Amino acid sequence: MVSTGSTTGDGSTTGGGSIVRPYGDTTGDGMVQMSFTLPVPHSKVAEGGALQLAQKMGLDAAMVVHAKPMGPDFTFFVVYGRVTHLVELDKIQVVERDFPLLAPKEANLAIRSLLGRKLTVVGACIGTDAHTVGIDAILNIKGFAGEKGLEYYREIKVVNLGAQVSVPELVARAQEERADAVLVSQVVTQRDAHLLNTREMSAAFREAYPSASRPVLVVGGPRFDEGSTADLGVDRIFVRGTTPADVASYLVHRLTQRRQGQAPTHQEAS
């Protein structure tokens, strides 16, 4: 939770400003809750270590409100305490949607007008990632959050390759299907696997295709940074909360840009 307002001399907040403080019990009290695991057996010493860590992170008068053994050698903690840090909303940069959100009927009409044929989308989870919930939510007809997936769109041909697809397999299938777009979902993030896999995928497509005919490359997952498109070599990144309509609308938008010879927008290139 956050309280909006500007700060006064005593650190409290007043309404109407761009500075906010966290609150837990009373407005502007700065209370936050965090969780983490320490690689030590559950004991009083472990709880003391959790408090020490919280204090070093700036939590004043930190309290361990939950501690649970995670096997014989680990302990999970929830810690509660006060921070003095402020959030300056006017300095925050985010990636906003810069294209119109289309209903399925509108997207179908736009695709038909733009391509004169169905738009082909190839989707997969690459590498060792076996979590297909995200890609299925976007592609499968059952969809997500009350929206039908891309299989529902009359003018979209969906090829869902499922989980643990290698990058060479993905490139080969995209070429075989003459894909207009490639959607990749990455949930496994240990040791930044999602970033390494995405860079490998984007490099492989750039090697396999001339730039003018490369499919639109889209990745999604809960741990991506939407502003990292250029670093990862993709056209768009979608994060949690993305719906099939978001993806379909973006594909229409991006393919329209390509057909008109336009460069990506700033946030797509950044």
Rank of each mutant, 00 (worst) to 15 (best):
S3H: 05
T4C: 09
G9C: 05
G11L: 02
S12K: 10
G15T: 10
G16D: 09
R21A: 07
G24E: 05
T26N: 10
T27N: 12
G30N: 02
V32W: 03
Q33A: 10
M34C: 12
T37L: 06
P39T: 07
P41G: 06
P41M: 10
S43W: 14
E47S: 11
E47K: 10
E47H: 07
L51E: 13
L53M: 15
A54R: 01
A54E: 04
Q55F: 13
D60W: 04
F74A: 14
T75H: 10
F76T: 09
V79I: 04
V79T: 00
Y80L: 11
Y80S: 06
G81P: 04
G81F: 00
V83P: 00
H85F: 10
I92S: 00
I92P: 00
V94S: 02
V94I: 11
E96V: 01
R97Q: 14
L101N: 04
N108W: 02
S113K: 12
G116S: 07
V121L: 14
V122M: 08
G123R: 07
A124R: 08
C125W: 03
G134F: 08
A137K: 09
A145N: 15
A145G: 13
G146W: 14
E147I: 12
K148F: 12
E151Y: 09
V158Y: 05
N160H: 14
A172C: 08
R173C: 06
R173A: 07
D180Q: 08
V184S: 03
V184D: 03
S185R: 12
Q186E: 14
Q186C: 09
V187S: 10
D192T: 12
H194S: 03
H194A: 00
T198H: 10
R199C: 13
A203E: 11
A203M: 11
A204W: 13
A204H: 11
F205H: 13
R206S: 11
P210F: 04
S211R: 14
A212H: 14
A212M: 08
S213Y: 09
R214F: 08
P215G: 03
L217D: 03
V219M: 02
V219K: 02
G221C: 05
G221H: 02
P222E: 06
S228T: 01
T229A: 08
T229I: 03
G233C: 05
V234P: 01
D235V: 03
V239R: 04
V239W: 01
R240A: 02
G241P: 01
T243Q: 06
A245C: 02
D246R: 01
H253M: 01
L255H: 05
R258F: 01
H266A: 09
H266V: 09
A269R: 15
A269I: 07
A269N: 13
